[in-house]
Design a protein around this nucleic acid. Structure first.
Length: 471
RNA sequence: GGCCAGGUGGCAGAGUGGUUAUGCAGAGGACUGCAAAUCCUUGUAUGCCGGUUCGAUUCCGACCCUGGCCUCCA
């Protein structure tokens, strides 16, 4: 099926053409592991997952690389910023290495709760210092670097005529809009490739280099690791939209002089999860993680469903009200699917399956319009002309495409509902039936309350009372 | 200040130059002793002002508002 994606570089929705037929390689910027990842971060990882699943559903082999940034970069290119990893270590009374380990584990666990397929490779920046140094050496040889004594090795952005292309800006515009100046940099957009360790304090993370002891600049790792695991050219590079102007622009600047242009075929950027008043952040006190949701009693799939309901280029507004709506909508679908599973009938109808398969896949293949796929999915569920065997196969397909685990959750529901009630509960139900027959509604309702308190739900059906265990 | 993206019903969020997205919530009805589930029906919208057009939510322009980037950020 034709795949289309919005390419930030061209600012247009383009037909996807792989570098190698049947294969798709992509790099997604991963988290800095100095703290837990919040729901906004998770939206990005979910979008990566949806992108990947869409390609898998279209029959591609997908090679997905996501880094973990475990080097503590300064909060600015000046010498004055804090190091986030060192700060995290101080906060938790751990070494920076322990902090990295803890938050990588937490992040992986949260991604797992959201049914995100693990990336093919998850390289860590600190495991690739050698590659990063080699990259600087190549740039140095090509004349793109200069040293600011006592500070670091910098990239001279004036040497690259196309600098800023991704963000649609040129150097003079950037200069005009800049607020902060590093007097030692040749151009305001120049950035550090290698920072020297301070002379007065000892860093926990530092390495030898041809230029002196220090640590790599924060854009460098993505260039080095993407090329190592995906080759000099690859299909897609993704990340949050805030990376367009600086991080990705600088990755391009570091890479294209070495490998030639274009380094990456398609740039895809994810919009924010927003709150009523701005984005999710620690400073505003609105910092929720997947575990927060679980503690509050939400199914992580409710959050995934909320994200799937929106479009990746559009902000999604998060509130517990919108999450409740998504949770209800999700539960309703699981309920329907459970009914379909419990009443499995008919044989798989290949022609009907193919028609719906394509109707479901088409919108998501067209620039990841997952919301439209969900609309088609709702139509499918209520279409009585499709038999249940075929429907189940299609729900399984939607699960592969969108990762929403409808079948798994529905099967759990069916299993819970088919569990046979213990004798004492059955006895209570029989007493209630007798009370009902005698039109003694008070006794009947009291008995039902008693059954409910024991963890079972009694519902009247046309074929008599039915007992189901509470989920 | 510079650049960019948006403003759709109670909520979230699509599509579309002329005919109801969808979901959640709400209302009414069927069924039920009452519930639950299910089914049916249903109301409410396109920031403001101009322009183009037979006709704009959909195209163009101004304005207002919101958000993002410019400094670490998914």
């Amino acid at each position: 099926m034709q795949i289309r994606l919005f390419n930030t570089m061209s600012r247009k929705v383009e037909e996807f053409k792989p570098l190698v037929p049947g294969k798709m390689g992509f790099y997604s910027c991963g988290p800095t592991v100095y703290w837990d990842q919040h729901l906004g971060n998770m939206r990005t990882f979910l979008n990566n997952d949806i992108l990947k699943r869409m390609f898998l559903a279209n029959g591609y082999d997908v090679n997905h690389v996501m880094n973990f940034t475990d080097v503590g970069h300064l909060t600015s290119d000046e010498d004055t910023g804090d190091d986030k990893m060192e700060k995290g270590a101080a906060r938790e009374n751990m070494s920076v290495w322990e902090v990295a380990k803890k938050y990588i584990n937490n992040c992986v666990a949260d991604m797992n709760e959201l049914n995100i397929i693990p990336p093919t490779v998850t390289p860590r920046a600190t495991d690739h210092i050698k590659e990063q140094i080699e990259l600087i050496q190549k740039l140095e040889k090509l004349g793109y670097t200069y040293e600011i004594p006592g500070d670091g090795i910098y990239y001279d952005t004036a040497k690259l005529p196309t600098y800023g292309e991704l963000g649609g800006q040129n150097l003079s515009e950037l200069r005009g809009g800049a607020r902060i100046e590093n007097n030692n940099k040749r151009n305001i957009t120049d950035f550090a490739l290698w920072k020297f360790s301070p002379t007065d304090t000892k860093r926990q993370m530092e390495w030898d280099s041809p230029w002196g002891v220090g640590f790599p600049g924060w854009h460098l790792e993505c260039s080095a690791m993407s090329m190592k695991y995906l080759g000099d050219h690859f299909d897609i590079h993704t990340g949050g939209q805030e990376h367009i102007k600086v991080h990705h622009t600088n990755e391009i600047a570091q890479s294209e002089p070495i490998v030639g242009k274009p380094w990456v075929s398609y740039w895809v950027h994810w919009a924010w999860l927003v709150l009523k008043d701005g984005k999710m952040s620690k400073s505003s006190g609105s910092f929720w993680t997947v575990r927060t949701l679980i503690e509050k009693g939400y199914d992580p799939m409710a959050y995934r469903y909320l994200v799937t309901l929106g479009h990746y280029r559009q902000p999604v507004e998060f509130s517990f009200e919108s999450l409740d709506a998504a949770a209800n909508g999700y539960k309703n679908i699981v309920r329907r699917v459970a009914d379909i599973i419990a009443n499995k009938s008919g044989e798989l109808d290949g022609a009907v399956y193919d028609t719906w398969h394509d109707k479901l896949l088409a919108p998501t293949s067209d620039n990841l319009k997952t919301a439209e796929t969900l609309v088609v999915f709702q139509e499918l569920l209520r279409d009585n002309s499709v038999n249940n065997a075929t429907k189940i196969a299609l729900v399984e397909f939607v699960d592969r495409l969108l990762g929403l685990m409808f079948v798994e959750h529905a099967e759990k529901l069916v299993a819970a509902e088919s569990e046979v009630a213990p004798a004492e509960i059955v006895a209570l139900a029989e007493k209630r039936t007798a009370a009902k027959a005698a039109k003694d509604w008070a006794t009947a309702d009291a008995l039902r309350a008693e059954i409910d308190a024991a963890g079972w739900v009694l519902t009247d059906t046309p074929t008599g009372p039915k007992l189901t265990k509470k989920a």
